[in-house]
Amino acid sequence: MNQPSHSTPDSDVLVDIRDIHFTYGDRPILKGITLPIRRGKVTAIMGGSGCGKTTLMNLIGGRIKPSRGTLTVDGESVPDLRTRELFELRKRMGMLFQTGALLTDLSVFENVAFPIREHTKLPESILRKVVLMKLETVGLRGARDLMPSELSGGMARRVALARAIALEPMMIMYDEPFTGLDPISKGVIAKLIRQLNQSLGITSIVVSHDVAETCMISDYAYLVGDGRIMGEGTPTEVQKSGSEHVRQFMDGLPDGPVPYQYPADDYVTDLTRSIA
């Protein structure tokens, strides 16, 4: 289960993102991001709302293609993969969506069983054992018969997590795993992320703007802002960083390099202008 030992330092990197550019229409979202993610580690990607964190995950998962730059996962260049190869690669990555993305017409059990049923031909008796083991990992074995609509936000995310590890992936991407959860559920999710990383050696990418929780569980952190990397290092290093931009984000200051004001004309001129 543990990552194999590699001799070259480069193969230590599972996801290699180099100088990635991405635009929606003609609006640049990512402007040259270089962001290596090491095997077996928990890597945090932090940044404000709308800075392109989800976009970055979609790039890693191959759902969208970068306009420039290289992106490899486990040595395979994601943007160049054909659909079939991409699907093979995706079986080895799990992704936890911001909303959980559980299939609403299937029970908890069937949701976790879904990827296994789609990709393997396990007999029903073994499938049942596997699913119950995954549910036990997230502490929801007893909730197997509930429907997604009957779950709380925290439980839904744990079920989604059980589903994400159903095929025993090499890595999991967590998109905002903490938002909208109460402190206890946040703690549970944080513990699960750490535990899956340690016991199964799953490389984890945590995308979040929850500074405290994310720093607590991550080995390395990147701070994204304005389409670029604003700071990186171990969580302690990042927290101590002198960069103004990093300071503003980590301390949650309303004004700073990221301005409080949305760009506008001069206030007084605007107020005194007569309506033409």
């Binding site: 093979e88 079986k91 993305a101 299939l103």
Partner: peptide, 22 residues
Amino acid sequence: GLMKATEQLAGMEMMAVNPVTR
């Protein structure tokens, strides 16, 4: 449409399941 809005279709894609087929 709701499956799309709640990321269920995107979720399937990431599970290597083609939502058009499934």
